[in-house]
Design a protein around this nucleic acid. Structure first.
Lengths: 153, 153
DNA sequence: TCTTTACCTCAACTGCGATTGAGGTTGTAG
DNA sequence: CTACAACCTCAATCGCAGTTGAGGTAAAGA
């Protein structure tokens, strides 16, 4: 296996589109050097970084947040054991919190299935009325588990 | 309490912005009738529908999907016990599946924290390499737990 | 009556996470 | 040496889930 990877290789090996690799690079999440003919060549650490990116997204972490985490890594180097432990611990905790929220919701759904929900006054979910509200903008439903949950405007 | 609600009332009672209420109506998720002066008036079932919408979003269901579910409800009527049971069961199952996925991920993170992850060859997550890949477009990270997970292009 | 608040429409814009396309260059297999 | 796949840049576009703003109308309270 060669020392460096082309975008295409990175893309196929990490399971993202070439355009996404370009995109991550533009966003500063990964880095490349160039050949004499201006083509990107990636060190193998990029696979790890892309894996981190995809995983973080799976956890509901935005690219901006991933970027901030990755910035603290030695650039161009494979993240160290400690780097990785720090990130993964933080993200695991975040994930755990989110799981707890979702489990609570699932529990409420369970009781709601039984309650018939024709009586607005008894249903724990429908009487949340505006407890479920307070949206963030856009599609990021995921993220609402940090500190700023449930602060009404 | 009056028979019908203005947008403002719907908004404050359901915890979403007025613009969001308009938006949901444009998308066909809720319906209104108009006063002689062209102002929207909502039946109280709209509160329930908005609650469903918000909840579904919390579960990671897109508005398009919610729309499809809501289309099957009697329009302008409060969803029946059965309607609600059907939806909530489906969404709860979806949610449960998602929770399982996330728990698996959290477990992997746990073992990864210990493993140091300097040896690419042993780490369960990094060797997933392209198992985590296969993105949907845009911000909807959530949804990837239906049937179409893990189909490489 | 007047004033203020809430409402109306419509179009444009935001932010995220990319993808798509045009027009051109590089690298490699035959 | 040539064909062709893979690469390059840059700008535009997409899809989602709304928000914002301009310009105007309706309704409720003093």
């Amino acid at each position: 296996m060669q020392r460096t990877l082309t975008v295409g290789e990175v893309a196929s090996r990490s399971g993202v589109a070439v355009s996404a690799v370009h995109f991550y690079e533009r966003k500063g999440l990964i880095a490349s050097h160039r050949t004499s003919g201006n083509q990107r060549r990636y060190d193998r650490d990029v696979l790890r970084r892309v894996a981190i990116i995809r995983m973080a997204q799976e956890l509901g972490v935005s690219l901006a947040e991933v970027g901030m985490a990755l910035e603290q890594l030695p650039p161009g180097q494979v993240p160290s054991k400690e780097d990785w432990a720090r990130m993964s611990t933080a993200w695991r905790d975040k994930l755990r919190r989110r799981i707890v929220l979702l489990q609570r919701l699932a529990g409420e759904l369970d009781s709601c299935i039984g309650c018939g929900c024709l009586s607005l006054d008894r249903c724990p979910i429908f009487n949340a009325d505006d407890q479920l509200g307070s949206g963030g903008t856009g599609a990021r439903v995921l993220m609402r588990d940090g500190e700023d949950v449930r602060e009404r405007e």
